[in-house]
């Protein structure tokens, strides 16, 4: 029964990891760029939500009305003002620039907020749970999982059914030809980044309501998101959800062995998948 409980908690945790992964995967899919500061932007989003909540008194979930557009704007500006100047055949410049962003965000947050652990108080929902058989499901993890599923479904619609999504895919295929068809590819890249940051904002609030965070909580979130992407298979958002679930379950099962084994178990499963199925569990079919 303990095992079943661990697996169920792991599946729900996987929803959160899929949220970390979705924005990362989206940006890589459209422009082959990996934002090393992805996790740090999640933490930045959490601090922004914290400030919004303390200034307005809004419930953390309602604060998203402000945090999502704000983060989207930051993402758009980051792409247009900084990353756009580093894009090209060489992957190194954008990688190193986002690495620099990570260092700056961590230390700026440290200077502003100290290393004290913070938390977004979501009220009674934090501890509420639904008994199902002999296990109990936390309401917050359930909401997180539901949001992850809804968000991925929404991103799929945007990607495969909308004008912006067509421009994303066309630009990713062949930016030069897209440009000749009248697509403003720089705007398209920035839109993809803004969308990624909107997802970051949602992930940030759900993370911050669930657990403590501090200025250095970012890198681990990047790694979990990344592992979910690779386990699930590149270019497939539903695969990414599956990847997040595999990672979440690996971690909760690992924690059953020993608390110090939790994160390590996730990393080991990541390497196992890389060894056995280098294209991930559900690679995009070409």
């Amino acid at each position: 029964m303990v095992l079943v409980d661990a697996v169920v908690q792991g599946v729900l945790l996987g929803g959160l990891y899929a949220l970390f992964a979705a924005g990362l995967s989206l940006v890589f899919g459209v422009m082959r760029l990996v934002n090393i500061a992805h996790g740090d932007f999640i933490v930045l989003g959490a601090y922004i939500a914290l400030m919004v909540v303390s200034l307005t008194g809004l419930h953390p979930f309602l604060s998203l009305v402000l945090v999502v557009p704000l983060m989207g704007l930051i993402g758009y500006a980051l792409q247009r003002l900084v990353l756009e100047r580093t894009m090209g055949a060489d992957v190194l410049p954008p990688l190193l620039v986002t690495f620099g962003c990570a260092v700056i965000i961590q230390n700026a947050l440290l200077a502003l907020f100290s290393t004290d652990a913070q938390r977004l108080s979501a009220g009674p929902i934090e501890t509420a749970s639904l008994p199902v058989g002999s296990i109990s499901l936390g309401v917050l993890p359930l909401i997180t999982f539901g949001v992850a599923v809804a968000l991925i479904a929404g991103l799929e619609v945007v990607f495969f059914r909308s004008r912006a999504g067509r421009a994303f895919r066309a630009t990713s295929d062949d930016a030069e030809t897209a440009e000749a068809m009248g697509v403003d590819t720089r705007h398209v890249f920035a839109l993809a980044m803004a969308l990624s940051f909107a997802v970051i904002a949602v992930a940030a609030v759900l993370l911050a309501a669930r657990s403590n965070f501090d200025p250095f909580a970012g890198p681990a979130r990047l790694l979990y998101g990344f592992e979910a992407v690779i386990i699930g298979g590149l270019g497939n958002l539903w695969g990414t959800l599956a990847g997040g679930i595999v990672l979440g379950v690996a971690q909760t099962l690992g924690a059953q062995v020993s608390p110090s084994f939790q994160i390590l178990a996730g990393h080991l499963v990541f390497f196992l998948i890389l060894a056995l199925r280098p294209r991930g569990l559900f690679p995009r079919m070409d």
Partner: peptide, 19 residues
């Protein structure tokens, strides 16, 4: 791992060894 994902992969490797 393709391109930039290699970088993040090396980071996971380092975390694994540290853990």
């Amino acid at each position: 791992l393709e391109g930039a994902y290699f970088a993040v992969g090396t980071w996971v490797a380092a975390e694994t060894v540290a853990l």
